[in-house]
Design a protein around this nucleic acid. Structure first.
Lengths: 226, 226
DNA sequence: AATTCTCTCATTGTCGACATTCGACACACT
DNA sequence: AGTGTGTCGAATGTCGACAATGAGAGAATT
């Protein structure tokens, strides 16, 4: 499955894509907090490219909804409110439940093993870094969607995943019940493995609901604190 | 509800967005058939703008999946195969069924009237232009998603709608049963109106299935003909 | 005759500079 | 003192030109 022995082509991705990836990474890991302006000249100096590729990368992130643009003013990192959190998890529910129903009916043992390893890694990250755990959480869901084998569900989910991470990453002290999260994922996987369509759908829907609740609660707690 | 008495701001959309809209329109109405290369210089001359905005608009359409880019070669209009048709309607099913479940539980009479007028217009377009009917078909589904009030479901659907139109537009002679299409939409609306969640979900899923079948059949017919 | 090599040309990728727009500050006026 | 206006600065919006890449045609070689 690996391509060792073969030299991968140099620069397979275009510069705008490369820049967009770096910017997305920076937005998601907190380097660029919400509402910060992304200066074209500053970025072009830091990344040693002209403003052209920077602007093209920004158009991609604009389309993704990770950036907000004001004409003749610049682009800013989006600031997601409670409504957005609910909306994101509603959309994720739509995507993931459909993906799960496919995996239930036509998932392979290999798919299940991949998903199980994701849950195991999530369990292993309980006592580790907070960011690590959120990433593993999302990796499980990404693997679930990937197992469905739908290019478009995958594309839609990746966008939603980025937005989810953007919501989660700044709420570390407020997010409760780490062990519980692991169990929820394991239960979902078990239902899928048992080809129990109704149960998988029910658990996944509940998981989305609960996750959205946790985040909105955490957000309210954060607001009252400041 | 209208803003008469108030002057609308001039140039509310940025140039790359304007260009992207024009290009999308051109792709969907057949001006740029699949696999056509979009030349930057040619477009910049036709639209009287520099290559910069053109390139930025292309990045947006690239992200949407309407264009395919080859490094140092240029961008081309995507050519959607049978797998893509099935995938598109799978993704639409995910989005629209979720939207429908929301409208079933919290749709207003105003929503229903809007949807009914869409069905009526669709029925009125049965004997008219083919393109007009496909547009009205999609407009109904767009209104359905819009009634759910979810920004992200709406965004995802608009992308899928463009891809759907791209599939449908070139298959006029092969698409059967125009009257039947109208009845399917009316039945879906009736179920939603009756707040019958299960029935609406069932009909919508079936509608997606049937539509995808029609298109793949039409595509096969087209291929054997040529 | 087929293949390979080279040259040419069209197209994209990138860059630096100019034009334009908007926000902020200071000033004049009522 | 409050409001409106004018100016300044910094950022974006746009443009034209240069560099680099890849494809195709033609000629030379085996």
């Amino acid at each position: 499955m690996t391509d060792s022995g073969q030299l991968a082509p140099l620069r397979l991705e275009s510069t705008p894509v490369l820049v967009a990836d770096r910017l997305r990474e920076g937005i998601l890991d907190g380097t660029f907090p919400p509402r910060t302006q992304l200066s074209e000249v500053a970025l072009s100096q830091q990344l040693s490219v002209s403003r052209g590729p920077i602007r093209e990368a920004m158009q991609r992130l604009l389309q993704e909804g990770l950036l907000r643009g004001e004409r003749n003013r610049g682009v800013f990192v989006v600031d997601l409110g409670e409504n957005d959190v609910r909306d994101i998890y509603l959309a994720r529910s739509a995507v993931e439940r459909t993906a799960a129903s496919i995996v239930v009916s036509s998932g392979t043992d290999e798919d299940f093993e991949t998903l199980q390893s994701m849950v195991d890694q999530l369990a292993g990250a309980v006592d580790s870094n907070w960011v690590e755990m959120t990433k593993m959480d999302l990796q499980f869901h990404l693997a679930l969607v990937a197992a469905a084998g739908s290019r478009r569900l995958d594309r839609m989910f990746r966008t939603l995943m980025a937005e989810s991470q953007l919501c989660i990453v700044r709420l570390e002290p407020f997010y409760p019940g780490r062990e519980e999260v692991v169990h929820e994922h394991q239960a979902i996987l078990d239902a899928i493995r048992a080809r129990d369509s109704a149960q998988a759908d029910k658990l996944l829907a509940a998981h989305m609901e609960v996750s959205a609740d946790r985040l909105t609660k955490a957000e309210q707690a954060e607001q009252t604190e400041s």
